Simulated scan of single mutants.
Amino acid sequence: MSEGHAFPYQRIVDDLRTEIITGNLTFGEKLPSENTLAQRYGTTRPTVRRALALLKAEGLVTTRQGQGVFVRPKPRVRLLISGSNYRTHREAGLPGFNAQVREQGMSPEQRIRDVATLDAPAEIAHRLELDQNAQVVVRRRTFLVDGLPIALCDSYYPAALAADTVITQPRRIKGGVYALIEDPDGPIRRQVSHSVEDLICRMPTREETTELNLMPGVPVVRVIRTVYDSENRPLEVQESTVAADSHEFRYEVKMR
């Protein structure tokens, strides 16, 4: 037994992990059967199962009942936050998330989970500079990449801003909500100016683990974005819970 492999299953783990990371085993590819791996490594099926369980805990593989073990698809989205990026996507008539995912050769999707009018939670009211007991419209969505859920996004708008607009309706808005807000012939006619973002890392709730199909031990990032208009009035608070293993964030800030 070679140094560094004190346990029989460790060599299996190390070899398969390397093959996955280097791309020799590609996303969605089926791993050899337990019998095949046991013969290859001169060990037993229980030892192979232990190795596969570790790889599953690391988020590298997933099991399908009656089909076997597969390399887990794990799209990684690079999100660039900058004013020029925002304007480029707005001029193209695309929501920023959809545009950036497509630029990276993947397929974006936004599924509306719920649209409702409710009393503003205290934190949301504070960020939107609303009075206590003011109402907001919330649009709850799930963001997917190549069919896999990677983020839960709840966007809150002052009820007075969203009243009598499609923001209150459970359907997609062409170009996204910002296109509606900035439409010079539309009902709101305000210019999106800037945003402030807070990022908080934590472990997911049970519901978030289910909704995002997270593997054990994978944390989430709570992103709270407050969006302002050209007169520094808050337009939206966007609260997103994103899978930490599926996102990379990059911020470009012009200091002068």
Rank of each mutant, 00 (worst) to 15 (best):
S246N: 15
S195I: 01
I173E: 10
A179S: 15
R250A: 14
D146H: 10
Q110P: 00
Q104G: 10
P158M: 09
Y178I: 05
L37G: 09
I224F: 01
E182G: 01
E58Y: 10
A159Q: 14
L37E: 06
T241Q: 05
Q169N: 05
T26C: 04
R90Y: 13
F143R: 14
P32G: 10
A51V: 01
R45E: 14
Q191V: 09
S82C: 11
V166Y: 03
P234T: 06
F7R: 15
Q110V: 14
T62S: 11
T36P: 00
V61R: 06
Q67H: 12
R90M: 08
V71D: 07
R111G: 00
R141Y: 13
R171E: 09
Y251S: 04
P95G: 01
K74V: 01
E252R: 12
H247L: 15
Y157C: 03
L152T: 06
I124D: 03
Q10E: 14
E197A: 13
Q110S: 14
R256V: 12
R76P: 00
N85A: 03
F27V: 04
V136A: 11
F143H: 11
P73W: 12
A159R: 12
V145P: 02
F7W: 10
T165K: 09
A120T: 10
D131T: 08
E58S: 11
T205Q: 05
H247D: 01
M1Q: 09
L212K: 06
I81G: 00
E19Q: 14
G217Q: 10
I81A: 05
I112A: 07
H5R: 09
P158W: 09
R113L: 15
R190W: 05
V227K: 04
R40M: 05
L130H: 07
P73R: 14
V253K: 13
R45W: 02
R50E: 08
V253N: 05
F7Y: 13
V77H: 14
R72E: 02
S33D: 12
G147S: 12
I20K: 08
E182H: 01
Y228H: 04
V136I: 14
R256W: 07
A159C: 01
V77Q: 04
V166K: 13
D183R: 05
L118E: 15
P75M: 09
